[in-house]
Simulated assay, not measured.
Amino acid sequence: MAEALLTLEGVHTHIGQYHILQGVDLTVPRGGLTVLLGRNGAGKTTTLRTIMGLWKPSRGRVTFAGRDIAGLSTPDIARAGIAYVPEAMGIFSDLTVAENMTLAARRGPPDKARLDWIFAFFPALRRFWSQPAGVLSGGQKQMLAIARAVVEPRALILVDEPTKGIAPAIIDNMIGAFAELKREGTTILLVEQNFRFAAALGDTVAVMDDGRVVHRDRMAALAADEAAQTRLLGLTLDAHQ
């Protein structure tokens, strides 16, 4: 297995009076795609938000590229090379697609070659380039959210359920885009319920339950083990497709 780019060690996160993460241990190997699975309420989104500094861990270490980032602000974590695509997408509906992309580019106007690469997977973004992002469909907004995260190369991308409510044709384009990101060396941590998508892309998998990681494996091994799927997730992967 490749060296770890990101590790969480004994991470606890409280939100108000609620103790959501209860000692999360997670390793994300460099250059691969790690899938984070679990039933609703297991703590998957809280894990991503804790990594990104949106919620502060009350205990434990979050180490990225050898540096403890648990105490950093969200902007500093982003500057360190981590991008986040939340389930809510986080786009600016009143701004044009072009303006959304420009805001996401830290080093000035987006690079033309990079935009052409993005348009190859998400051609609707070229078509609506000068239109307000609010006119996009749900699937097109998800394309824009992902495109914003990858408008510049990032070391690590955190993605929360990118295929939720998205048409199969767009999902196929996303598979191509994420596969290409992997080929260029980007590390991805993905929360996902579409197991066809997860199995097509995932290298490693971690399963969460009740605020902890309870199972780690190769994604291919879990995809082939229906008994483990039922034990850990309640349903087999086939039942989720």
Rank of each mutant, 00 (worst) to 15 (best):
E152R: 08
D203S: 15
W117S: 04
D116Q: 14
L222P: 06
G138I: 09
D203N: 15
V150S: 04
M174N: 03
G211L: 09
R39F: 03
S73A: 15
T74W: 00
M101Q: 06
A169T: 13
A80T: 07
A239T: 14
R127K: 12
T50Y: 08
D225G: 11
E9H: 08
L232Y: 03
G43Y: 06
A177Y: 13
G139R: 01
G43L: 07
V85R: 01
T50E: 14
M101S: 02
T50F: 06
M143C: 08
R114Y: 00
Q131K: 09
L36N: 06
K112V: 08
A239C: 02
A223V: 13
I15H: 11
A179Y: 00
L6K: 08
E180P: 06
A70N: 12
A179D: 12
V24A: 06
M1W: 00
L189H: 10
I82P: 02
R231W: 00
K141F: 02
V97M: 04
T47Q: 12
H240E: 06
I82L: 04
N40D: 09
A124I: 09
V207L: 11
S58T: 15
G43R: 06
A199H: 04
G134V: 00
L95F: 13
G165S: 00
F121P: 02
T47F: 10
A206C: 11
D160Q: 09
A145Y: 01
P132S: 01
R212Q: 14
G139N: 00
L232D: 00
K112P: 13
L72E: 15
E192A: 08
H12F: 14
M52V: 06
N173R: 12
R216K: 14
M208D: 04
G234N: 10
P29I: 02
M52N: 04
D203M: 15
A227F: 05
H240T: 04
E99S: 10
D217H: 05
V28L: 03
N40Q: 06
T45R: 05
L72G: 11
Q241H: 06
L8S: 13
T236Q: 05
M101K: 01
T50P: 08
E87F: 09
V97D: 03
L115G: 02
A83Q: 08
L37K: 12
M208C: 09
G38H: 11
Y18F: 10
V151P: 00
N100T: 03
G138T: 12
P153H: 09
A70T: 08
H14T: 01
E226N: 08
I157Q: 01
K164Q: 14
T34I: 11
A147P: 10
A149N: 03
V62R: 08
I82R: 01
V207N: 07
D172V: 14
A2S: 15
A120M: 02
